[in-house]
Design a binder for these strands. Structure first.
Lengths: 127, 127
DNA sequence: ATACATGCAAACACTTTGCAGCACA
DNA sequence: TGTGCTGCAAAGTGTTTGCATGTAT
C-alpha cells in the first residue's frame, strides 16, 4: 500500500492548508469544486482520512456536527460557538499533565484527550 | 408548553436511571422494547431530548458515534475505548478552573467544556 | 503491469420531522 | 376540550463502500 501523488490528493491537502478556518469535508469539497476542478465528495472524504492518518493535517471530531480539519497539526484545543457552530482555536497550552489528574484508571490505558469548549462567539453575542 | 407525564416518558427516564452503562438511544429503545412495551424510536429520541434539557439526565455527545446518556447529571468526564467504543466514567474532579487557563479569549464567551479521553479499555488491551 | 485512486450511486448510521390520531390534564 | 404526545414513515445529515474504470509508478 504505497501512496500515490494524485491531483485530487494534492488539491485536498493544499485546500486545507490554505483555508485557515477549520473547514469541514463539505466546505473543502465546495472550495475545490468552485475552481472548475472535478472531484467527488467520496474522494475528499477518502483523502482527508488518509492525510490525517499520515499526520499531514489534523482531524477534529465535532460532537453533534460535521467533523472539521485543521492545517495546524500540533495538538491544541478548540471552542465551538453553540449558535453559529463555527470552530475557533483556543489560546491554551496543551495540558499534557491532564491524564495524571485522573485518580483511578481502572485498568484503562489512555493515549489522548480532546477538550472542546462551548459558548458564544463575539458575533453571536450581539444577537 | 406544559409537560405531560406519559407512560413512555416515565419509561425512558426510569430506563436511563436503571442502566448504569451510558446507554445510547438505540440501547434504551431496545431495553424498553424487550419488555413487551410498545414504544417508537422517535419517542425515545424526543423524550431523551426533553429529559436532558430539564436536567433529569445528562446528554453525552460522542464524536464519531451515537450519543449516550447518563443517569448521573453532575458534570464529570468520560473516556471512550477506541476499539470497542464503550464509554466509561473518569475519576477526575471537574476542572472548573480550566477556562481561566485560556490566555486570550478573543471575545468568545465560554460557558462549558467537554473532555473526552481516548484509549483502550482493559478487555481490549488483551487482544 | 499492477496496485492504488477515482467518480458515481447506493448504502449506512444516527437523528429529526410531518402528520394524523390519541390521551393526559 | 385542547394542547401536548404518540407511532409511523419519510426525510435529513454526515460519512462510508461496492464497483467499474482510470492512472501513477
Amino acid at each position: 500500500m504505497k501512496n500515490r501523488n494524485t491531483l485530487q490528493r494534492r488539491l485536498v491537502l493544499e485546500t486545507v492548508q490554505r483555508m485557515h478556518n477549520h473547514p469541514t469535508a463539505e466546505e473543502i469539497f465546495r472550495e475545490i469544486s468552485s475552481e472548475n476542478t472535478l472531484i467527488s465528495k467520496a474522494t475528499v472524504y477518502r483523502n482527508l482520512k488518509i492525510l490525517s492518518e499520515q499526520g499531514e493535517i489534523q482531524h477534529i471530531p465535532i460532537p453533534n456536527g460535521a467533523d472539521c480539519f485543521d492545517f495546524n497539526n500540533t495538538p491544541h484545543y478548540h471552542m465551538e460557538c453553540r449558535r453559529c457552530r463555527r470552530v475557533f482555536d483556543v489560546d491554551m497550552p496543551y495540558q499534557a499533565d491532564l491524564c495524571s489528574k485522573i485518580q483511578n484508571l481502572h485498568g484503562f490505558l489512555i493515549d489522548s484527550h480532546h477538550i472542546v469548549f462551548s459558548g458564544l462567539c463575539p458575533e453571536c453575542q450581539q444577537k
